[in-house]
Design a protein around this nucleic acid. Sequence first.
DNA 1: AAATAAAATTAGTCAAGACTAATTTTATTT
DNA 2: AAATAAAATTAGTCTTGACTAATTTTATTT
Lengths: 218, 218
Amino acid sequence: MHTLSEENYLKCIYRLWQDKGQKITPTAIAESLGNNPASVVDMIRKLTEKQLINYDKKKGVELTAQGQKDATLIVRRHRLWEVFLLEKLGYHWDEIHDIAEEMEHIKDATLADRLDKFLGFPEYDPHGDPIPKANGKMAKRSSITLADLKAGGHCRVAAVKDTTSSFLQYLQKLDISIGTKIQLIEKIPFDGSLVISIDGGEHKTVSSKFGESVLIDM
Amino acid sequence: MHTLSEENYLKCIYRLWQDKGQKITPTAIAESLGNNPASVVDMIRKLTEKQLINYDKKKGVELTAQGQKDATLIVRRHRLWEVFLLEKLGYHWDEIHDIAEEMEHIKDATLADRLDKFLGFPEYDPHGDPIPKANGKMAKRSSITLADLKAGGHCRVAAVKDTTSSFLQYLQKLDISIGTKIQLIEKIPFDGSLVISIDGGEHKTVSSKFGESVLIDM
DNA sequence: AAATAAAATTAGTCAAGACTAATTTTATTT
DNA sequence: AAATAAAATTAGTCTTGACTAATTTTATTT
Ligand SMILES: [Mn+2]
Ligand SMILES: [Mn+2]
Ligand SMILES: [Mn+2]
Ligand SMILES: [Mn+2]
């Protein structure tokens, strides 16, 4: 099996691969994990040895079939524990990510499946991300963000791209959660700021960075 | 905070201290953890640095007030997770120990207390061991074993001293669980084997090692 | 095409936590 | 009291996963 670090790298690579269809470079991984690129190069070597990834200067890092499978199961565990922490233990959605970051590494053959059953086979985690099934299959997450919407357009918040508590607390303050309806009133050309109406309420302005962190359905 | 290894050592020392009132030596710790005595000496140094234990050649290893407190909270987490795994996820009592061994290290200020509440503030874990309260207080565990009983005596299984699955599965096969009533029919002088009657059933013979692993109330 | 900047890699270091082998200290026998 | 055995400790090594500093490779400007 994999070490805690290997699992965190795997999951990170998986996320970068899902997010953007872009080339995954050592620097991108380093940035995402807050590690030094030199350390990443070491781990790339190790994961390549283990046949979980392939690395090619041109193509960047790619997950092998096995790597994808393993990464998916880590994500499954992470999201299931998040549901547990929120629904059963009463945590708020801005507190659960870091705890799940530890719990996802608990190793037992049947744990995830039992937890899944106990939770009633949830489809989505509290941040709107789809939970992979035991067989690895999962619903596809929306890839359009609030920032992609045209002025005047209506949408529904599908998920959040950022799980830091600073972002989630800001959302809470704005009364936005998964499912909230938002209309994009206007895009400010100068800096991409967005004027929005939350659930038909008064106009409010948010940054482009904010808009890019909110995934939507139309 | 403490590392995973430090926590495992702390808990081990705590258990040795509870079990026997005896002197806790490096060799005893090494044996209990399956580590080399040399490694134990290293860790004794580190835990002493951190003021969690005191070590004196004469007195052996002793927990400081802080060490006791910290150890108790690890035990609390371990036992609460065991209850969760058995009651909520449907594991059997011989499967939960090793998983809880990992879960006890999840770090979050309010996790144990929320879990405790979610489980309905259980008093005992599935092996009959008392669960420390948030303030560190806990019921005292029985210290008499089946092997201490006099021939003819009656008792009730209070807890098990050994949590290996080989022992627990043996108990299950014998139809013994927490609360089961046992009568000690006879002690074989030759090797200390015990002839017992489980819940008034037919006579069965078990080893002295077995008897020493079953904690009883009278 | 050169110059410059950025990214990737190598080489060497460090801490944690384990180990083995050798040595010293303490306890037990004779 | 000496001899022997057991326990504790020291010294040195290894692996993992991080780091910094130096170097090489690749990309971007001028
Ligand atoms: Mn993690
Ligand atoms: Mn999530
Ligand atoms: Mn443990
Ligand atoms: Mn237990």
